[in-house]
Amino acid sequence: MQIPQIRIESQVGKIGLNINKPIQSIEQPQADLSIEQPPAEMTINRQPGRLTIDQTLARENLDLKSIFKRNEENAQLGYQTLMEYISKTVQEGDELMKIENGGQPLIDQAVRAMDRESVFNTGNTPSQDSVKIEYAPAKVEIEWNRNKPNIQVQINKPIHEYTPGNVEVFMQQYPSLNIDFTI
């Protein structure tokens, strides 16, 4: 006896996938940088040194006097000589007025007049201190003005490109079911 049989054949369904991966690119451009350095400014204020040499006294010691100095000295010498003459005349007059007191006033006066020394001046050598020297040193003032640098930065945004991926689903193999009945 034959037993009836059921024969079942099944085929599994298969799904196929086509995958396109996403593409992403990120690029960061460099920043634009601008630096400018203005030059420093320098000013110099200079006051020159001053040298003063006064040799008037040395020239006067050598009898090389200016006309104004010579006039002043002559006026002073004339005044002094006049005063000495007046003083001497008064003194001699007083001596003569008191002749009755005794003594020899006329002879004494004559001897004094003969004893006067003549002065002859050939000039002097200037002394060490006769030349006056004054010196004021130079003054230098330096001023700096440093200028700050000008820095400008332009930041660039990143370049971002993105292509999304996709997935295509398809049936690679369809499922099937066959049922057979056999006796």
Rank of each mutant, 00 (worst) to 15 (best):
P126C: 06
Q5T: 08
D180M: 14
K65P: 02
L64Q: 03
Y79T: 14
P29I: 07
Q80I: 05
P22M: 13
Y174I: 05
Q128R: 09
Q47S: 13
D129K: 15
G93H: 03
R50Q: 15
N147E: 13
E143K: 14
Y174D: 00
N156A: 13
E27Q: 14
I8P: 08
N178Q: 15
N166C: 08
L62F: 06
Q109Y: 08
T125G: 08
R50E: 13
E141Y: 01
I44N: 06
A113W: 02
G78T: 00
T163F: 10
V111P: 00
N71C: 06
V140Y: 07
L96Q: 03
M42Q: 03
S34L: 07
E36F: 00
D32Q: 09
P39R: 10
S118W: 10
E60H: 11
A40L: 08
Q30M: 11
V169P: 00
Q154Y: 14
E141S: 09
Q173G: 06
Q109V: 07
Y85V: 08
K98W: 07
P158K: 11
Q24H: 11
I107R: 10
P4N: 06
N18Q: 15
Q152L: 10
E117S: 09
P158R: 13
L106V: 12
V111A: 14
I67Y: 03
E143C: 01
T43N: 03
M1Q: 00
P164F: 07
R46M: 12
L77C: 00
I142L: 15
P105N: 06
E27I: 13
G103A: 07
G123D: 06
N20R: 10
V111C: 01
T89A: 01
I155H: 06
P105K: 02
Y135V: 09
M83H: 04
S25V: 13
L96V: 08
Q24P: 02
L82H: 01
E117N: 09
D63I: 12
E9M: 10
A58L: 06
G103Q: 00
H160N: 13
K65M: 12
E134G: 07
Y162D: 05
S176C: 02
S127M: 14
E41W: 08
Q11K: 09
A136D: 13
E27Y: 12
L17G: 03
M83T: 05
L51F: 00
L96S: 06
A40P: 03
P105A: 08
T52Q: 09
L96W: 06
E84A: 12
E161G: 03
I23D: 14
I151E: 07
F170M: 03
N124F: 06
E73W: 04
Y162L: 07
V12C: 03
L82T: 07
K148Y: 12
Q28A: 11
I23H: 10
Q5R: 11
T89P: 04
Y79G: 02
G102V: 05
D180H: 12
Q30Y: 00
N166A: 14
R46Q: 15
P105H: 04
R116D: 00
K14A: 13
R46E: 08
G102R: 02
K148F: 11
P38M: 07
F170W: 13
Q76H: 01
E36D: 05
Q80M: 05
L177I: 15
A58P: 00
A113C: 04
I3V: 12
Q152C: 01
Q28C: 04
K139W: 05
L96N: 06
P126I: 02
G165D: 11
Q76V: 05
T122D: 01
T81I: 05
S10H: 10
Q154N: 13
H160I: 15
S176I: 01
